[in-house]
Design a protein around this nucleic acid. Sequence first.
DNA 1: GATGAATGAGACTTCATTCAT
DNA 2: TATGAATGAAGTCTCATTCAT
Lengths: 204, 204, 204, 204
Amino acid sequence: MKSKVLENKRMKQEALTNSAFNLLIQKDIHEITISDIAKDAGVAKGTFYLYFKDKYHICDYVVQKESEKLFLKAHEALVASDIENFEDRMVFWINQVIMQLEENPVILRFVQKNFTWGLFRVKDQQYEIIEEYNITKEFEIEARKKGFRYDNPAITLYTLIELVASTCYGCILFSQPMSMDDYRPYLFEAIYAILRAAKREIKE
Amino acid sequence: MKSKVLENKRMKQEALTNSAFNLLIQKDIHEITISDIAKDAGVAKGTFYLYFKDKYHICDYVVQKESEKLFLKAHEALVASDIENFEDRMVFWINQVIMQLEENPVILRFVQKNFTWGLFRVKDQQYEIIEEYNITKEFEIEARKKGFRYDNPAITLYTLIELVASTCYGCILFSQPMSMDDYRPYLFEAIYAILRAAKREIKE
Amino acid sequence: MKSKVLENKRMKQEALTNSAFNLLIQKDIHEITISDIAKDAGVAKGTFYLYFKDKYHICDYVVQKESEKLFLKAHEALVASDIENFEDRMVFWINQVIMQLEENPVILRFVQKNFTWGLFRVKDQQYEIIEEYNITKEFEIEARKKGFRYDNPAITLYTLIELVASTCYGCILFSQPMSMDDYRPYLFEAIYAILRAAKREIKE
Amino acid sequence: MKSKVLENKRMKQEALTNSAFNLLIQKDIHEITISDIAKDAGVAKGTFYLYFKDKYHICDYVVQKESEKLFLKAHEALVASDIENFEDRMVFWINQVIMQLEENPVILRFVQKNFTWGLFRVKDQQYEIIEEYNITKEFEIEARKKGFRYDNPAITLYTLIELVASTCYGCILFSQPMSMDDYRPYLFEAIYAILRAAKREIKE
DNA sequence: GATGAATGAGACTTCATTCAT
DNA sequence: TATGAATGAAGTCTCATTCAT
């Protein structure tokens, strides 16, 4: 039957992806060989090429998947929460992200600059926010209720994510220039400030 | 005479450093070989090893030097300016950094996460701001004059730099998710917001 | 079928081994490169590393194999002979070894100090004579028949082999300080003397 | 004055020789670089070439010198001793050599096959015993006194030296196949046997 | 589809030797 | 004479990629 073959293929691919993830957690992509990945996945070297063009291909794939997973979890936590105030919701959401990074700091090691990739999606050569866990919708809704609007919420979100990812990298991974716990209050203060600054009164 | 030899040595080292810089501008360190650097510098491969342990060594050196140069230039521009308001001064300074990065976007390629290294210096296993072009002093002075103080200016500076470096990376290098010109107003708005949020009234 | 692949692998390994042997015959291991061996074997450089860790590995392998071959041949000749007297048997056996070395003096070049390795085998960090062509058994049997015993025959054998190998090296390879033919009578005289001295009467 | 310059040259050469010796004690010649030798001797690399053609040149020189020293010492000890019996004298002398090798086993590491070079000297493409510490003279004298003669004493000496050097190499350096202390009685027994076998009655 | 042996380009590195000072 | 910076040939070894089975 066909489905058995397809299932087998899917499993091979997943095994390769998992192996790539595990290895990326331990070392830089340039220290990882295709041999390593294949061996860890329990398949032959040649098999790798049936699924991925090269190691950069599989790594991009892994990064994308892991970031998405992370943002999805944060989104779910937000949905489950009953925080009312929008700015608090946003900070709660960001904190979910930070907490996941703290728990699993290894993601930071290879997500690096590409962190926002998990939140945005390339379409027509332009980034576009992934709808499923789009927090920017809340900007609009929240704003409207209170007689405000947010000026370009996607950009504000981008600003926040870059700030968080960038500072987490040093604070969580290396405690440099300070630990995440030490830095968190300052980070949150900055986030609140950015959010407030993006608010515009609706002129009528 | 000895000086001729020494002069020659200095020139070789400089040639190597320049070549490394030029190559790092064009491609990732992992695509650069020591052969490339040596050839570009017009010296024999073996000569490279008289000056640097390996390519990571020379790259660290280059990154450190270039970042310092960049911050120094920004500092000099600030000194030469006659902007009065502190927040405007800070934004002017940051803009100087951004402009240099725009002019020479290649720095971003290899400075990456280590950008702040040019501004901070490791001492006793702790980062410490380099005095020569320390803008945080201004926080204190400005604040005092106006009956304010800034809560931990070094941390605020860190926040700002990370935000700038992180967003510039995508906007300048890849125009992703938008061009620097498009993003700049939003960035500055965020910067002003962060600065203002860090202000504290002095209680008497 | 698998066997074709395996057969091919065996052939590659043999080709490498033969090439290493042929080259070791001509020059010192330090003048031989892995490139040389691979080229001579008609395989790619990388293939070498599929079979051997480095050139010392393949050389050890060759030395071990060649010494074993040599002693095996000597043993077979002894078995085929009908010499009665034990001391004559021993000398016959040694002469077989010498004759092989004369025919193929190149073995001496790289067997050097490690000649006895072909006769002894490391077990539990101790040398132990290889059973298949163990001539020391004859010491015991011969002795018993005549009312004698040999004091520690393995050590006597060791003494003899070292003497033979050591002197053959100069006499055969360089005719220094004299040719093997000139030296042989003296060598045999010494061998007989050593054998006789190791004899002990069994006290009753 | 000239002598000062000459003295200086001699010192440089000696420094180089000593360094080569010290290094050869620690590692194989192929692991030693001319840089190592020059640095250890406290001279510039280029200076090395003013005194020796290459590292093999200096090593041959060192080996020759050290072996000669060793045999000279053994000879002096023999002269100072009052042992009467010739065979005992010979064994005493050999033991002197062994003892020196035990004390300074490193000599064995690089003397290897070339040990007898210290005892013999090439002349007209033939080895010839070095007169100064020629123990073979004693063969003749001793023999004559007792109504014997030794059949070609130089060859017997050669046999003995090769046997000793060869077995010491394994026993002293690696305690393989046994320690020198364990082996010594067997070695001496063999030596006595060889000596006795070389004795010939003078027929009249 | 899956395999893994084979490839060989090319990276890194060392070091004997030269030569300007 | 003495130096040591510079050289570059030559060696070791890795690894992405191919391809016969």
